[in-house]
Design a protein around this nucleic acid. Sequence first.
DNA 1: GCAAGATACATAGAAGTCGAGGTATGTCGT
DNA 2: ACGACATACCTCGACTTCTATGTATCTTGC
Lengths: 204, 204
Amino acid sequence: MLELAVLGFLHDAQLHGYELRRHIAALTGHVRPIADGTLYPLLKRMEAAGLLRRELQPGQIAAPRHMLSLTTAGRRELLRRLREPDELFITDENRWFTMLAFLRHLDDPAQQAAVLRRRLHFLTQPASFFWDGDRPLRAADFDDPFRQGLFTIATATTRTELRWLRETLASLEPGGGTRQPRQDAAAGELLSARSIEEDLQRGR
Amino acid sequence: MLELAVLGFLHDAQLHGYELRRHIAALTGHVRPIADGTLYPLLKRMEAAGLLRRELQPGQIAAPRHMLSLTTAGRRELLRRLREPDELFITDENRWFTMLAFLRHLDDPAQQAAVLRRRLHFLTQPASFFWDGDRPLRAADFDDPFRQGLFTIATATTRTELRWLRETLASLEPGGGTRQPRQDAAAGELLSARSIEEDLQRGR
DNA sequence: GCAAGATACATAGAAGTCGAGGTATGTCGT
DNA sequence: ACGACATACCTCGACTTCTATGTATCTTGC
């Protein structure tokens, strides 16, 4: 996940390590802060792998910086990862959000749509957090409010995302609407009771 | 997170490793499957630490099993972790969901409420995924549909969870409603447009 | 002019996780 | 009778990540 974030942010702009660290912290850091001891060795590995360049710039502001920029191989690798993400990047919410943050770099709408369809497929698989033998347990099966909350939140998230996925997929298809479908739709609109699909049979 | 899940599941019932593995897979496995090579060494470590017992049961069904059960120390450790979770368990969605799955084991409603308040505090902190200098960027600042989706989904999740947190906190307070507040409330009710708070100023 | 804090990078050691492989038993279909 | 598959557990090496610590520069407050 970290590597994808590094590639994605550096595709947008040259950054030095410290700045990159803050970008990553904003994207995923409130959830799971990344440590110096993780980022800097990673950057060295990525440099050794030819994905990025590190150019020393003598201290203009504070200590000397390493200005980071993607190589051609790095840019290619970013596109490859966006085009063919590992299953974990589809299923793990944190990783999936990282995908969404940079999916626009993948120029081809058909390829973008293919990735969204993988997520759609995952979300429409039957799933549940708890089972009684083979029977999936639903919110109403619990009398403790915490597991009920777990289901409530997960269900709401899934519904919102499914709706967004279907809308966006429709607009990505050739001749399927404008290129920027949700430009003027308020986020709240997605939550209106009327617009929520009733066909969701998913446990979570 | 894994350790918490192990402690939590074993508090409910004795299980053997394979069964425990399937329980954990249902709770977090669709997101991030756990490997044999992770679970079995973990169980040995936890046994060495005195948190659980492993008793060999000669093969009744298939290969011989190790029936697992919590020790008193293990039960105490579970409660300690539920009472005083590390910050990561408050901020990381996957870990937080694990907390919710087992929070009922913490008998004292006041202690349960304290944990929920920590999550509430976290969710009401201003936060954003992307920044332009000091200015947090909102959904409308992007013209790519994927980052808009990111914001849309995150916002919807946060709103749903905030509402649930506040309801549940109210019912956990002394004299604050029944002990099982959401027993009969349908999950869908939480999503009705009328009931969604309009005061949310949070970026994500 | 001096301490505190932010900027900026680095390394070492401890620990956890994964993937790939292995062993063995029981069940089911053909 | 036999192979495929599920059950059930185990180990090793490679890799990643975290924590703690260290170094050095620049800015800001007092």
